[in-house]
Computed example of a mutant assay.
Amino acid sequence: MLKPPKEISTMADLRVQIDQLDRDLLALLALRQAHVDRAAELKPGEGMPARIEARVQDVLDKVEAEAESAGFEPALARQMWALMVDAMIAREERVLGPSA
């Protein structure tokens, strides 16, 4: 179990926790990617393109708001998610073809 950062007294212990957080984040990102891969399978049957701009903006707006309440820099969260969303859409487009 992770300790709160204020309870960690050495850089070595802090790095152990940061490494664990990185592994945890990667596991969640892999799960998100699997969901996006499934979206690429489902969208053709529903007549949807890879990029749906309203959905992109909705995701980014929600992330920004959630970051604020979680104590994470909202603008940074939006930038990070925008990069990830663009990469995931490119992944979908390799299956579906480019959006119109």
Rank of each mutant, 00 (worst) to 15 (best):
R91G: 07
E53M: 05
M84C: 07
Q33L: 04
K3H: 10
A27Y: 10
D19H: 09
E64N: 05
M88G: 05
S69P: 05
A50F: 06
A82P: 10
A12R: 15
A30M: 11
V63L: 02
I52G: 02
A30Q: 15
D58Q: 13
G71C: 10
E46D: 12
E41Q: 14
E73R: 12
P4D: 14
G47I: 04
I18E: 13
E68C: 12
R15Y: 03
A67C: 07
L76Y: 10
Q20K: 11
A77S: 15
L2P: 13
A65P: 02
T10P: 00
P44K: 13
S9T: 00
L96E: 06
T10E: 00
Q17W: 02
A87G: 11
R38D: 15
V16E: 15
E92K: 13
P74F: 09
M84E: 13
M48I: 06
K62F: 02
P4H: 09
E64T: 13
P5E: 00
Q57I: 01
M48A: 06
R51I: 05
Q20W: 08
L83G: 15
D58W: 04
V36R: 06
R32K: 10
D58I: 03
P44W: 12
Q79N: 12
V95L: 05
A77E: 09
E73I: 10
D22K: 14
D61H: 03
A30H: 13
Q79P: 01
E93V: 05
M80S: 03
G71F: 11
V59R: 08
